[in-house]
């Protein structure tokens, strides 16, 4: 069953690709260079009602001198591949090669396609995602003010860093976070910021969304941070989630109308897509 679903997933992706072509997600304006990479393991529950489907994806926080960007660990490679093949003379061939390369990269599912750009030393962040549905690129500009409650507790060692605990309420969930002053960055995974050190671990009370630091490294090579704000239409989080839900419905429709799936029980896949409902923010 598991294998069948995995195969179907590839089929769905291919189908979408054929329909719309590789909608090239390009953020081609270089805005900064990466100094540090913090990698987080993001463990989340896709279906709010059932906890037997916990998924883990690797997410990276790229920290530059002025900006930082948070995205799926393989998004950078994905974008790089597209960039390389963009100016190829034979577009069809290039698309094929690019796709075959992209396919080998893991992740980038429904819950981890977004990217977040934070401006250091500023509460304003830009949350964005391209190709939510065909050629729909959205961005949300937000002012993040988190009312952190610092908890007096013994030092907790996480990833060899001495950490302190803090709690907060954010978008309908109650979070426990651990931050370290050994990494003096006002930053963290997802939209989280505002603690006197980098957030090393953060989890919500129900244990449905957990970010844990797995590595922190200084980068000695040149790795630019790209962003092209012109590409994205400004909206708010509600509209973004609406678009995501529409996208899920679209996928269901696509499966129903397609002949590609043959005898496989599409109902199960439909049900799976429909239960992708446990978004990190409760609006």
């Amino acid at each position: 069953m598991q294998i069948k679903i995995a195969k179907l997933r590839i089929k769905i992706l291919l189908l979408i690709l054929v329909r719309y072509g590789v909608a090239i997600a390009q953020d081609d304006v270089e805005i900064d260079k990466v100094n540090y990479i913090a990698s987080y393991l993001y463990t989340f529950q896709e279906d709010s009602l059932s906890n037997d489907r916990l998924k883990s994806e690797e997410m990276n926080l790229y920290i530059g001198s002025t900006y930082s960007k948070f995205e799926h660990a393989y998004a950078y490679q994905r974008d790089s591949i597209i960039k390389v093949y963009k100016n190829h003379t034979n577009q069809q061939e290039a698309t094929q090669i690019a796709w075959s390369l992209i396919q080998q990269l893991p992740g980038g599912g429904h819950f981890t396609k977004f990217k977040i750009l934070k401006e250091n030393n500023n509460d304003t962040i830009t949350f964005f995602e391209s190709n939510i549905t065909s050629k729909v690129n959205l961005k949300v500009i937000q002012n993040i003010q988190i009312d952190w409650n610092l908890v007096e507790s013994n030092d907790t060692i996480i990833c060899n860093y001495k950490c302190h605990k803090a709690t907060c309420n954010f978008s309908g969930r109650y979070y426990k976070a651990w931050y370290t002053m050994e990494l003096p960055f006002n930053n963290g995974p997802y939209k989280f910021l505002g603690l006197p050190g980098l957030i090393v671990k953060i989890e919500d009370k129900e244990g449905q969304h957990i970010f844990e630091l797995t590595s922190f490294n200084k980068i000695n090579y040149c790795m630019p941070i790209y962003f092209n704000k012109e590409r994205y239409k400004t909206t708010d989080m509600r509209a973004y989630y609406r678009a995501k839900k529409t996208r899920a419905m679209e996928l269901v429709q696509l499966i129903n109308n397609s002949q590609t799936f043959g005898d496989v029980n599409t109902g199960e896949i439909e049900a799976k897509i429909m239960t992708l409902n446990n978004y990190i923010e409760r609006l």
Partner: peptide, 16 residues
């Protein structure tokens, strides 16, 4: 010099 870590691949992981 920022203290770097790599937890990935460490065979023993300790939490609380």
């Amino acid at each position: 010099a920022i203290k770097e870590v790599n937890v990935r691949g460490t065979p023993i992981v300790s939490k609380q």
